[in-house]
Computed example of a mutant assay.
Amino acid sequence: MMTYKLKDLITTKKPHVCGSNTWEVVRIGADIKIKCTGCAREVMIPKYELDKKIKK
């Protein structure tokens, strides 16, 4: 499992609908809230699911 900190930038394998694949960590807990750097959309996703989708 990866460890996440606030303000970390995450690159996903697949791009978001807006075309950006870079996300910023906004909130940490049981679920992690990430914000798209392209369109500012916020998504809450479980840690184990995010670990599968992350590139770096």
Rank of each mutant, 00 (worst) to 15 (best):
Y48P: 04
I54G: 04
W23Q: 05
C39S: 08
M1Y: 01
K7Y: 06
N21I: 15
V26P: 01
T11D: 02
G19L: 10
P46I: 12
T11G: 04
K33P: 00
H16R: 12
V17P: 10
E42I: 08
I54L: 14
N21C: 14
N21Y: 12
G38Y: 12
T37G: 03
D8L: 06
I32F: 05
K33F: 01
K35P: 01
G38I: 14
K56C: 14
K56I: 15
S20K: 15
V26E: 01
K35C: 13
S20V: 15
K47M: 08
K14R: 13
S20F: 14
K7W: 01
D31T: 09
S20L: 11
E49F: 04
T37F: 10
E49I: 15
I45P: 04
V17Q: 08
Y4N: 00
C36G: 09
T11F: 09
G38K: 03
K55E: 11
T3V: 06
P46R: 01
V17I: 14
M1D: 01
V26M: 06
I28N: 03
M2F: 04
T37P: 00
M2L: 10
K5L: 04
K55C: 10
T22S: 04
K35N: 07
M2D: 01
K13W: 08
L50T: 07
C39P: 01
C18T: 03
K5C: 08
L9D: 05
Y48D: 06
D51N: 12
W23D: 05
S20W: 14
W23N: 07
I54N: 05
C18D: 12
I10S: 04
I45W: 02
P15K: 14
V26H: 00
T11H: 07
K53F: 12
I32Y: 00
A40V: 00
E42Y: 02
C18G: 11
Y4F: 15
D31H: 05
M44E: 06
K53A: 15
L9W: 11
K52G: 05
Y4T: 02
T12Q: 03
E42S: 13
D8F: 03
K7R: 08
G29S: 11
E24Q: 15
I28F: 04
T22A: 09
P15M: 11
Y4S: 03
I34G: 02
N21D: 15
V17W: 06
D8R: 02
V26I: 12
G38F: 13
L6R: 08
T22L: 14
Y48L: 07
I28L: 13
V43M: 11
I28R: 04
A30N: 10
K5I: 03
T12I: 15
I32V: 12
I45M: 08
V17H: 10
P15E: 14
I10Y: 02
I34R: 02
D8W: 06
K14Q: 15
T12M: 15
H16A: 14
C36M: 13
K7Q: 03
E49K: 08
Y4E: 04
W23L: 11
V17D: 05
K7V: 01
K14A: 10
A30W: 00
C39Q: 09
T37N: 15
